[in-house]
Computed example of a mutant assay.
Amino acid sequence: MIIKVCGMREPDNIRAVEQLGTDWMGFILYDRSPRFVSRTPEYLPVSCRRVGVFVNATPAYLYNKVKELRLDIVQLHGHESPSLCAELRQYGLTVVKAFPVESEKDLELTVPYEHCCDYFLFDKRVSTFGGSGQSFPWNVLDAYQASVPFLLSGGLSPDSLAALRMFHHPRWAGIDLNSCFETAPGVKDIEALRHFIRSFRDSTL
């Protein structure tokens, strides 16, 4: 099960989260986010995959950041087209397309992307782009029948362990942790993450 910690920015915090055994680490490259990475951090992880989080970025900006941060994965939260997703995959990147979900009907939006994305990420539907820090009704995903694996996002917190233990889906591939594990925007609570990651891994073995 993939554990992704997103919204990273500070070098010492990046290093500490990496040492927890995180699989993916996310860097938000959207200037309206309070976790926006405005310059390349002095330290970048080497033992986990680097994820760049974009919202309606121009291809030039996107490819520039891929090279600058040596990204392995791009996570797209805007209105990016299936053709762009396919192009990014041809470039050699893993592509994650995020979808806001509130009802089964929202899952229909994934259909054009089924053949050009490696993963989907399901988050709560809100009026703005990017993560919400809020949860959505996971039972909606019972209707998800596509072959693309997905990550759960939106409001996952230290109190989510019991619900995660109860959640099952054949395409569930991982979780995305962010604002509910912070002491300030872009600064993760290492002890809270350490306990959560250990407990989550124990429960999914």
Rank of each mutant, 00 (worst) to 15 (best):
F27R: 05
E104Q: 01
F54Q: 01
S199Q: 02
H195M: 12
L29T: 06
A98L: 07
G78T: 02
T204D: 11
Q90R: 04
L205H: 12
L62M: 07
G133M: 09
E114F: 11
L151A: 13
P185K: 03
L164S: 05
M166H: 13
V46L: 00
S127G: 06
S203P: 04
F54W: 07
K97G: 08
D31Q: 15
L193C: 06
Q90P: 08
R201M: 09
L152F: 03
E108H: 14
A16V: 10
R32W: 01
Y91A: 01
A98C: 10
E68L: 14
L156S: 13
Y119G: 03
N56R: 12
R89K: 04
Y113C: 01
A146W: 05
G78N: 12
V148G: 11
V51Y: 07
A192V: 08
V74C: 00
P59D: 02
V111G: 15
A184D: 03
H115T: 11
T40N: 12
F167E: 02
C85M: 09
A86H: 12
P11A: 10
R194V: 03
K97V: 12
E42Y: 11
D118I: 15
T40R: 12
S83D: 05
G7N: 09
S157K: 14
P158L: 08
G133I: 09
A146M: 14
D123C: 10
V46E: 00
Y63V: 14
S127C: 11
L193G: 13
E191L: 04
F36Q: 01
P112F: 03
H169W: 03
D118M: 13
E87M: 01
K97L: 04
D159V: 07
S153D: 07
R89V: 06
S83Q: 15
N139T: 15
K4I: 00
